[in-house]
Amino acid sequence: MPKIRSATLVPLFAAVLAAPTAALADSLWHPANNEAGFTFHPDHSTSTKTRAEVLKELEQAKAEGSYYYLQRGLPVPSRNTGPGKTRQEVVNELLNMSPEERARMDELYGDN
């Protein structure tokens, strides 16, 4: 009787231990034995876009110039949305800040 029990329990126990790792095979994140503790595999994802949609986005990125930066792994520069504030405008905003706004800024950034 003990041989039958161990012959049944050992494979069952092995299957129970292997089941969580088998579930990770379909995910983007896999456990790794390194400092990060995981690895990222984007090729394991499924896309909802068609090939035509992806090619259209690629052509748009090339036309607007962001493809150059993305291709090299660089951040895309922000577009100029217009003139910024002058120094005096910023100082005026600071001086006209309500006590509630000032308390919130002190909470966020510390009161130096």
Rank of each mutant, 00 (worst) to 15 (best):
P20E: 00
S6E: 14
F13R: 13
L12C: 12
E89S: 04
P42Y: 03
A18Q: 00
Y69T: 01
L12I: 12
W29G: 03
L58P: 05
G65T: 04
L74N: 09
R51G: 14
Y68R: 14
A63R: 06
V10D: 14
M1Y: 13
A52Y: 00
A15K: 13
K62L: 04
D43E: 15
D43K: 09
S45C: 05
E64S: 14
N33P: 11
K3E: 14
P2D: 15
S47G: 07
P77F: 12
Q60P: 02
Q60L: 11
V90T: 03
R5V: 14
V10H: 15
Y109L: 06
R104F: 06
S78I: 11
P99D: 04
Q71R: 15
H44N: 13
F38W: 09
F13L: 12
T86F: 01
E59W: 02
Y69M: 02
E101I: 02
A103K: 00
A36H: 13
E89W: 02
M97N: 04
P77H: 10
L70K: 10
K62A: 05
G37V: 06
P99H: 03
N96W: 02
N96D: 07
S45A: 12
W29S: 07
D111M: 07
G84T: 04
E89R: 02
A22H: 08
A23Y: 06
S66M: 01
T39A: 13
L95H: 03
E107H: 11
A7S: 13
D106F: 08
M105L: 13
A25M: 15
N34H: 03
V10W: 14
A103H: 07
T8H: 12
T50H: 06
V54H: 06
L95Q: 02
M97Y: 01
P2A: 15
P20N: 01
K3N: 14
M1F: 14
G82S: 05
G110P: 01
S98C: 02
L17K: 10
H30P: 03
S98G: 07
Y67I: 05
L74Y: 12
L12Q: 15
